[in-house]
């Protein structure tokens, strides 16, 4: 794995000219070979970073789309070991190297062993980790283990996060800051929480790490509105939905994923320099 990839991931906001499109995939939906194809399509469409989700039996923070995909992946026999293996394959097969972030709930990691997990991420091609149910006060040990391996533990911030807590979270954060757009679970929505338009500038004041917004983001108009506020977006359920709805014609999925990624990236890019927070039509 090249040193430049790590650097790319850690680029500070000031030195980055482009808005980031982070694409989420549920690993092994519907199987691991297909996940490689989907990843390729997303990167070709312009995704700057891939978030590889480890399926979990009880995904508390996920809506119906990702719940169903996770169930399907688990039924296909996917586990943490295999998701790490997927990282290796992606490292080899992607036409363009982008940072890989592993997203998981805590329990699969605990059973795998925290130290073993931390030690294996980098050799398997991952640059960072997001652990959905490991909030700030429970995360110290994991953060130290990952830090030793030069892996970023990407923190989550919610519209309900208070300022004193926000400061602590951001201070310890690495890679990028994942700002949750709504009080709710993952899944496409028409409107986003109005609080994020004041939350994002607050986070930006505290860190030079890129601030990306996720949960509920699915459409180019939302990408455009959020692109004006934040440094990028995370899109997940919208891609998973594409995979689900073209199951009868798998050949078209790659094309559709690439097209959606391209539209989102274009919408993000078109907002470059248009940094006013009063525009977002989709923010409630």
């Amino acid at each position: 794995m090249s040193a430049s990839r790590t650097e790319h991931f850690f680029l500070s906001r000031e030195s980055r000219s482009e808005k980031l499109l982070v694409a989420y995939l549920c690993a092994g939906y519907p199987d691991l070979e297909k996940s490689v194809l989907w990843a390729q399509a997303l990167v070709e469409g312009g995704a700057d970073c891939l978030e590889i989700g480890v399926p979990f039996s009880d995904p508390l923070a996920d809506g119906p789309v990702i719940q169903a995909a996770s169930q399907r992946a688990l039924a296909a026999g996917v586990n943490l070991e295999k998701v790490l293996g997927l990282g290796e394959v992606l490292q080899e097969k992607l036409s363009k190297q982008v940072p890989l972030v592993l997203m998981s709930y805590l329990n699969p990691i605990l059973q795998y062993g925290m130290e073993r997990f931390a030690a294996e991420l980098a050799p398997r091609g991952f640059n960072g980790a997001i652990i959905v149910d490991l909030p700030y006060e429970e995360g110290e040990t994991m953060q130290a283990l990952l830090c030793r391996q030069k892996i970023s533990l990407v923190p989550l911030i919610a519209p309900t996060t208070r300022i004193n807590r926000l400061q602590k979270i951001v201070q310890r954060g690495a890679g990028f800051i994942y700002c949750i757009s709504v009080t709710g679970v993952t899944g496409p929505r028409d409107t986003l929480d109005s609080r994020i338009s004041s939350l994002i500038p607050k986070i930006k004041e505290l860190t030079s790490l890129p601030v990306v917004v996720g949960f509920g983001v699915s459409r180019p108009e939302q990408a455009a509105a959020l692109g004006a506020l934040a440094d990028g977006i995370v899109v997940g359920s919208a891609f998973i939905r594409v995979i689900g709805s073209f199951q009868a014609e798998p050949g078209r999925i790659q094309e559709q994923l690439k097209g959606l990624a391209k539209n989102l990236k274009k919408a993000l890019t078109d907002t470059q320099g248009n940094c006013c927070s009063s525009s977002p039509v989709v923010i409630r």
Binding site: P135, Y136, E138, L156, T160, T161, R162, I180, T183
Partner: peptide, 20 residues
């Protein structure tokens, strides 16, 4: 103070719930 009974317990929740 961390909500632990020995090693057990704690608050392993998504960030949105922390303030609540």
């Amino acid at each position: 103070a961390r909500g632990r009974f020995g090693d057990y317990g704690g608050k392993f929740v998504p960030e949105t719930l922390s303030a609540a």
